[in-house]
């Protein structure tokens, strides 16, 4: 990310820290102590780093669900739904292929999860292109529906009778569970997230596909006149975003829960939206921003224990960061940044 985009983001972060500091000061807590503790909890030791990275792993992937379609000027907020469907598909695949060698099943789980997540967001993209349905509202509604379907399946047809008081699907067989990265206590989702983000960055900045996508995002009418397959680009990019969030769901199942159940709905999809915006929809910038948000999450517990701050302190800080960032965007005006969706339709301000 060029310096002229990094600096405003850092400035927004600094202003947010001042505002949040004033906020905790108003409730009688020392801001310096708060930040010192947050540093300890997030990055102060190898344990804290691993805590942070573990929480960052799903955020990288769910952020891509918003960041990729944003290249086309779309605001997609359905990462949570794609994650849930991805997890469900992974379990179903692992159970169906039980007995096959692990590499085959790993691959199949990953593909199934990405296909499920991709289908959900791809559908939102198709609705946008084919029927002009707003993708923001559609992806949100699809998320609510996906969560309801998951709960219905987990407590009905897909329920493991042995799961008794915590209704869940049957467990993924042990051979197909995903372990931790060598030398650290962080699961493979982190590596996959980084790889996916890198691949997305290459795709969006170094290929003709990415160039075409950016053209659509810049000016859909011109793109259509130039003969670009706008619909295909739209649906494929949305599907790729959904696939990323679906993969996050696969890892939640294969590396964290070992089965699918309502615990998959943990808000990673919604936090991912924030990460994407703070990363200015740049797939590469998503990585450090996800780590930052992972760190905020990792230090939340410490703030509760040591300072008696409510758990919502983390939400307040995230909210302040997001609002400050957007306000900063507007105030700096001239620098390239978030675009209105889609900007071409606002000729009076072009």
């Amino acid at each position: 990310m060029p310096l002229d985009r990094v600096l405003p983001t850092l400035a927004a972060l600094a202003v947010s820290m001042v505002l949040f500091g004033l906020f905790v000061l108003a409730v009688g807590v020392d801001p310096l102590e708060t930040y010192a503790l947050m540093y300890t909890g997030a990055f102060g030791s190898w344990f804290s780093w691993q805590n942070t990275l573990t929480r960052a792993a799903p955020l990288i992937l769910t952020a891509l669900c918003t960041a990729l379609p944003a290249r086309l000027g779309l605001v997609v907020i359905g990462g949570e739904g794609a994650l849930v469907l991805g997890g469900l598909a992974a379990v179903a695949t692992a159970l169906a292929l039980d007995g096959l060698p692990p590499p085959v099943v790993y691959g199949a789980m990953g593909l199934a999860g990405m296909a499920a997540g991709g289908a959900l967001i791809g559908f939102a993209g198709a609705l946008r292109h084919g029927r002009g349905v707003n993708e923001t509202i559609a992806s949100l509604l699809l998320t609510y529906i996906a969560i309801a379907v998951m709960k219905q399946l987990v407590e009905g047809p897909m329920k493991d009778p042995a799961s008794l008081n915590k209704p869940s699907t049957a467990p993924v067989p042990d051979a197909y569970l995903v372990g931790t990265l060598p030398g650290m206590d962080v699961h493979w989702g982190l590596a996959l997230g980084v790889l996916f983000a890198l691949a997305a960055w290459v795709l969006m900045t170094r290929t003709t596909f990415g160039f075409a996508a950016r053209m659509v995002g810049g000016n859909p009418r011109a793109a259509r006149m130039a003969g670009l397959p706008v619909g295909t680009l739209l649906v494929v990019t949305c599907a790729l975003g959904g696939a990323a969030a679906g993969l996050a769901g696969v890892m939640e199942v294969a590396a964290v829960h070992g089965r699918a159940n309502a615990s998959m709905v943990a808000g990673y999809g919604f936090t991912g939206i924030l990460v994407a915006f703070l990363a200015r929809q740049n797939p590469l910038a998503v990585i450090p921003v996800a780590i930052l948000f992972g760190g905020i999450g990792a230090s939340g517990g410490l703030l509760q224990r040591r300072l008696d701050l409510p758990d919502a302190a983390v939400l307040v800080l995230q909210g302040i960061i997001f609002v400050t960032l957007l306000a900063g965007e507007g105030l700096q005006g001239r620098l390239p940044s978030l675009r209105r969706a889609p900007p071409a339709a606002r000729p009076q301000e072009a």
Binding site: S45, F47, S48, T54, G301
Partner: peptide, 20 residues
């Protein structure tokens, strides 16, 4: 610690209580 979801969060909350 309150409002800790039944995910990797609870693992890390407990480990944080232990480590820190």
């Amino acid at each position: 610690e309150e409002k800790v979801p039944e995910t990797v969060d609870v693992e890390k909350s407990m480990e944080s209580m232990i480590a820190l």
